[in-house]
Computed example of a mutant assay.
Amino acid sequence: MTPHADLPHVDLLRLRDRLDPAERTRLEEIEEHLQTAVRPRLAPYWDAEEFAFDLLPGLAGLGLGRLVLDGSSSLFQQLVHAEIARVDLSLSALVGIHNELNLGMIAHLGSDAHRDRWQARLESFESLGAFCLTEPEHGSDVAGGLATTATLDGDEWVIRGAKRWIGAGTIADVALVWARDAADGEIKGFVVPTDTPGYEATKITGKMGLRIMQNADITLDVRLPADAQLPGAASFDAARDLLRDSRMWVGWQGFGAQMGLLDSLRSYALEREQFGRPLAKFQLIQSAIAEVAGNLAATSGMMLQVDALRQEGRMEMMHAAMAKATSTRLARASAALARDALGGNGLLTEYEVSKMMGDVEAIYSYEGSYGMNTLIVGRAITGVSAFV
């Protein structure tokens, strides 16, 4: 259910007004494409747990494959991520991880040879990447418990292990794999073409959310040339910086999801009639709409300030964790309100809210579960760790 064109924009605090005119025009063009050419086509892919490959050329044509490298402002990039999340969190996850982790990692941490082989193909979505960190037995404790090993054998790296919940793992052309060097114990990053013998990916099915994203279980028993190691990813410190920024980006996903929920709830309330009048005229429905709008406005102000700290180089992991945890918590609350307001129709993907509700459950848990992110905030505020 696409929003009414004549209704007020769901950017309630008008964050886009802070963009320069050229970026605002570009954002409006991206929004128009997403709302008219993408949003109406997504439900069948979500129902079937299939990836929407046919939508990638349109996204590439808007420059979304190289967003992190195009010189645009930080706020513009985050608002683009929010607009994609507004229509679908799987596409948002693909474009966000693609830019923040895969393309960004190749461009900033890779060698000239890595960039020559992969960067242009990634920028155009000709190739897709997979960021391979989480493991079957190590999610929240992956920094200390990561079990995938990398052993230098002559002039080759031998990488053995398993990864889980890897986005685009079955459809990616290149995997960026984090493994522990058997020689020094450091966690390092490696470029693994997915056609390398010994790379196996199995799609995870039956998910309640992010059903368009092709998450995978991956097993690795591969041999790679010595130059497969990313020179800028010689320790886990590089991953921490990437994960801090991507954790903040998930906060923008939560913001975008709340925009989409407000779209759907408001449009349904105006179109659906009961007892001879639109649902929007009932106090309980207006109360739900106002609460969803309040959650969205609160998230807007928080994310704007966190982005400002990032631009100033003052964003810490605590800020990113707070933004991610709070935004996704409020998105979860708004999804419940919207689903309830739609009654029985709220159970159908045709009306979007059930799809969004399932997808929000996923972002509530990834990039650090809600509990882990609250403990990061609690440690920063009290100076006392409560992780174990």
Results as ranks from 00 to 15, higher is better:
residue 4 H to N: 11
residue 229 Q to L: 11
residue 68 V to E: 06
residue 379 R to G: 03
residue 374 T to R: 11
residue 241 D to M: 06
residue 202 T to G: 00
residue 90 S to A: 09
residue 45 Y to F: 14
residue 311 Q to P: 00
residue 380 A to C: 08
residue 102 N to Q: 01
residue 111 S to A: 13
residue 127 S to G: 07
residue 196 T to W: 07
residue 209 G to R: 03
residue 353 V to M: 07
residue 315 M to Q: 10
residue 95 V to T: 13
residue 162 A to N: 09
residue 126 E to L: 12
residue 166 I to S: 01
residue 198 G to I: 15
residue 365 S to F: 13
residue 271 E to F: 15
residue 219 T to I: 04
residue 355 K to F: 00
residue 19 L to S: 07
residue 135 E to R: 09
residue 215 N to C: 05
residue 92 S to H: 12
residue 53 F to V: 01
residue 323 A to K: 05
residue 7 L to E: 12
residue 167 G to R: 06
residue 309 L to T: 05
residue 370 Y to A: 04
residue 144 G to C: 10
residue 340 D to W: 14
residue 187 I to E: 01
residue 365 S to M: 13
residue 113 A to R: 15
residue 261 L to R: 03
residue 129 G to M: 02
residue 24 R to I: 09
residue 278 P to R: 12
residue 297 A to I: 11
residue 41 R to L: 08
residue 297 A to K: 04
residue 247 R to H: 09
residue 279 L to K: 11
residue 316 E to L: 12
residue 258 Q to F: 14
residue 361 E to S: 14
residue 318 M to D: 08
residue 179 A to W: 11
residue 272 R to T: 14
residue 239 A to E: 04
residue 330 L to H: 13
residue 343 G to S: 06
residue 208 M to A: 06
residue 324 K to P: 00
residue 60 A to Q: 04
residue 52 A to M: 09
residue 364 Y to G: 01
residue 265 L to A: 11
residue 120 A to H: 07
residue 67 L to H: 04
residue 3 P to H: 08
residue 209 G to S: 02
residue 287 S to L: 15
residue 312 E to N: 12
residue 87 V to D: 13
residue 135 E to A: 09
residue 13 L to K: 11
residue 364 Y to S: 05
residue 162 A to G: 00
residue 337 L to H: 06
residue 126 E to V: 01
residue 233 A to L: 12
residue 200 E to C: 05
residue 188 K to W: 03
residue 67 L to Y: 08
residue 178 W to H: 08
residue 125 F to G: 08
residue 197 P to M: 08
residue 155 D to Q: 14
residue 267 S to K: 15
residue 123 E to Y: 02
residue 82 A to K: 10
residue 207 K to E: 00
residue 41 R to F: 09
residue 27 L to C: 08
residue 351 Y to G: 03
residue 150 A to S: 14
residue 58 G to Y: 01
residue 54 D to T: 06
residue 279 L to C: 13
residue 369 S to R: 14
residue 150 A to M: 14
residue 69 L to M: 02
residue 34 L to E: 10
residue 27 L to M: 06
residue 306 V to T: 15
residue 121 R to G: 05
residue 352 E to W: 15
residue 112 D to T: 08
residue 293 A to E: 15
residue 98 H to C: 01
residue 227 D to Q: 07
residue 226 A to Y: 05
residue 275 F to D: 00
residue 44 P to T: 00
residue 92 S to F: 13
residue 28 E to M: 12
residue 55 L to Y: 07
residue 301 G to P: 10
residue 135 E to S: 04
residue 263 D to Y: 13
residue 130 A to M: 09
residue 17 D to I: 02
residue 29 E to W: 01
residue 156 E to I: 02
residue 174 V to Y: 08
residue 262 L to E: 05
residue 236 F to D: 11
residue 128 L to R: 01
residue 81 H to E: 02
residue 348 L to R: 14
residue 198 G to H: 12
residue 291 E to S: 05
residue 352 E to S: 07
residue 162 A to L: 05
residue 190 F to V: 05
residue 148 T to L: 02
residue 202 T to A: 04
residue 261 L to M: 15
residue 260 G to D: 07
residue 155 D to C: 11
residue 318 M to N: 03
residue 204 I to A: 03
residue 266 R to A: 06
residue 71 G to H: 12
residue 65 G to W: 03
residue 121 R to Y: 07
residue 43 A to S: 04
residue 64 L to N: 02
residue 284 L to H: 04
residue 1 M to L: 09
residue 57 P to V: 06
residue 320 A to V: 08
residue 374 T to N: 09
residue 377 V to Q: 06
residue 122 L to Y: 01
residue 235 S to D: 14
residue 105 M to G: 10
residue 285 I to H: 15
residue 60 A to L: 11
residue 223 R to S: 10
